[in-house]
């Protein structure tokens, strides 16, 4: 493994760590709300990763203005993609939260293990 390369790609490493944290939360925590928080952390890690790909050393925002050359701008495609991704993440979170509300109404708990009838994990 090339560690100096990894240091230059620090954003990627951080996004990998965030992804693992989110995955751990989703798998281990029994509370459905905490699972959702983990899912959102995983989504955020992917957003960080993709936006970081588009970065340029000393880059400017991709907005045409006086004195900004097009060669100085960062890559606009990841930003547009992630804008879409954020909206989809918000939508899925909204639907998941309303499912959680319904589950709480029906079972009186948000503990996945209790809902499945297996008691505490």
């Amino acid at each position: 493994m090339n560690f100096s390369r990894m240091f230059h790609n620090l954003n990627y490493v951080v996004s990998a760590l965030l992804f693992l944290m989110g995955l751990y939360t989703v798998v281990v925590k029994p509370n459905l709300i905490k699972k959702l928080i983990g899912l959102n952390i995983m989504e955020t890690s992917v957003f960080l990763f993709i936006v970081s790909i588009g970065m340029v050393e000393g880059g400017e925002a991709p907005i045409v203005a006086e004195g900004v050359k097009s060669s100085q701008m960062v890559n606009p495609i990841p930003q547009a993609l992630i804008l879409t991704g954020i909206v989809v993440a918000v939508s899925t979170t909204a639907v998941a939260l309303s499912l959680c509300l319904k589950i709480h109404e029906r079972y009186g708990t948000l503990n996945a293990a209790e809902i499945l009838g297996r008691g505490e994990p």
């Binding site: 230059h8 990627y12 790909i53 880059g59």
Partner: peptide
């Protein structure tokens, strides 16, 4: 990640 091109590179 170790195999990816350096971030910030043009």
């Amino acid at each position: 990640i170790g195999k990816m091109p350096a971030m910030n590179s043009r």
